[in-house]
Structure formats: structure tokens, C-alpha cells
Amino acid sequence: MINSQETAASHLAAALAEIRARFINDLIPLINEMEYQRVAMTDPALAPEAFSSLQHASHKISGMAGSVGFPELGDHAARLDVTFTKLLRAPYDHAGVQAALDPLEAFLSLMEDILDEVL
């Protein structure tokens, strides 16, 4: 019984390590995409697509980050998810876009810090 519990625990630990590695790997293209959309979202013509992409990326991160050891990143992503959902639903709001730039910048820095630390 104890052996089977130990086996299950080691399988889970191995799976979590693999999932964490895949998550970190996925951060690299996400940073590039979000950097690009950060610039695009200040242009009213490109903003809807940029908001959608930024919302998708932050939603994807918010759902996983906490489970693979990055709770701060997950919380930050969840807040951005809400921000971009609101921006996406409303007509283009210059003040709202400006207010989102700093948190987005901080988020991108946090992602880069994580990559610096683990890679």
C-alpha cells in the first residue's frame, strides 16, 4: 500500500516537473507576442485584435501559473485577463489603454525574471 502511494506520488512529481518545463517553454513565444501587442494596442485600428490576443495570453497563464509554482504570475495574469476583457467589450478608451500599459509592462518583466531565473 505504502509502495503504491509512493509510486503514485513519484509519478505525480514527474508529471508536474514535465508540465512545469512545458509551461516555461511556452512563456518565450508568449512574451514576444505580448510585447508586440503592447505596442499594437495603442493604435485604435489594431487595438481590438491586440486586446483579444493579450486577453487570451493572460488567461492562458492565469489558469496554469499557480499550479506550476508561479502564484504571483498567475494572480497578475488574472488581473490582466479582467482588464483586457473590459477593454475588449467597450469602445476604444484611450485612458483605459494607458492605464493598462504599466501593469502589462510589470507583467512582462515578471515573466522575463522567471525565465532568467530558471533557464
Binding site: 503514485a8 506520488a9 509519478h11 505525480l12 508529471a15 508536474l16 508540465i19 512545458r22 506550476v68
Partner: peptide, 9 residues
């Protein structure tokens, strides 16, 4: 994948 591992565990 995470759910698979967690549910198995």
C-alpha cells in the same frame, strides 16, 4: 495534462 496527472494521483 495537469488534470490527467492530478486525477491519476
Amino acid at each position: 495534462r495537469l488534470l490527467d496527472a492530478t486525477l491519476n494521483g
